[in-house]
């Protein structure tokens, strides 16, 4: 985590500038969409509701993005720089998980100002009592999504150049999490199925809960799916790591 705080501009860009730009784009987009459609509601929700969803979903999506650490883990394995970690008495998984969680905690505290400020400027309403429980769910989900990234990174033990897999995985999560469009826009059956996957905990469930789209039942489902996701991906991660390390050739040193 210290390495990420070493460079001020890099940190401020990541924690403040990028969320601010993303929020501006979302606001512009949804204003233009409603103005162009000339309607007050789409699928039963007004501009205010969509804007609140878009602002908070952009924030949550950024919070749950893992590509940077996934890239680093894969690079360590691919380049052989993992050698200096494998010969030390600690776990590669825990090493990266602690960096990831530490960095996310600090950036969240700083970048939370952006959606809060946007809500104040545009008078967007959310259920404020639900903000902290929603963030708690997202932080729980971070364990799942970082474990998934760890699995993708361990594929570097078997294959060279796995960045295309990271991109493909991110595209999938973009859709399944509800970041691209709220899951409410999917047919009911598909929406229901997607809420039984852990990935909806990145955006749709926490943001929907905060913005009052649904009640505690679906929020509780989020904790359940995150838990089985953690168990499932955790087991897969152990398997992939053990097999990967066994075939590792230590290239690059």
């Amino acid at each position: 985590m210290l390495t990420n705080l070493e460079y001020r501009l890099n940190f401020l860009t990541d924690a403040v500038l990028q969320p601010a730009v993303t929020s501006m784009i979302e606001v512009t987009l949804w204003f233009a969409l409603f103005a162009g459609a000339g309607v007050a509601e789409i699928n039963g929700f007004g501009l205010n509701a969509y804007l609140a969803y878009a602002i908070w979903s952009a924030f949550m999506a950024r919070l749950t993005s893992t590509w940077m650490y996934e890239f680093r883990m894969a690079e360590e394995i691919d380049s052989g720089s993992i050698n200096s970690l494998l010969t030390r008495p600690f776990s590669f998984f825990e090493y990266y998980m602690s960096q990831f969680m530490g960095y996310k905690t600090i950036t969240t505290v700083v970048s939370l100002l952006v959606p809060l400020l946007t809500c104040w400027i545009f008078d967007l309403t959310i259920i404020w009592d639900r903000l902290l429980p929603a963030l708690a769910l997202v932080f729980y989900y971070l364990l799942v999504v970082q474990t998934l990234s760890f699995i993708v990174a361990t594929l570097a033990f078997y294959l060279n150049r796995i960045h295309a897999l990271t991109v493909a995985k991110n595209m999938g999560l973009w859709l399944l999490s509800g970041e691209l469009v709220p899951l409410d826009l999917f047919p009911e059956g598909i929406k229901n199925a997607l809420t039984w996957l852990p990935f909806a905990n990145a955006v749709y469930i926490p943001v929907g809960y905060m913005t009052g789209r649904f009640g505690p039942d679906l929020f509780l489902r989020g904790w359940i799916t995150a838990t089985y996701g953690l168990i499932f991906f955790g087991l897969l991660a152990v398997l992939s790591w053990k097999r990967g390390v066994a075939r590792y050739a230590g290239t690059g040193a």
Partner: peptide
Amino acid sequence: LGQKNQLWWD
């Protein structure tokens, strides 16, 4: 490893 950095570069 004389040709590799094992401490943290940054």
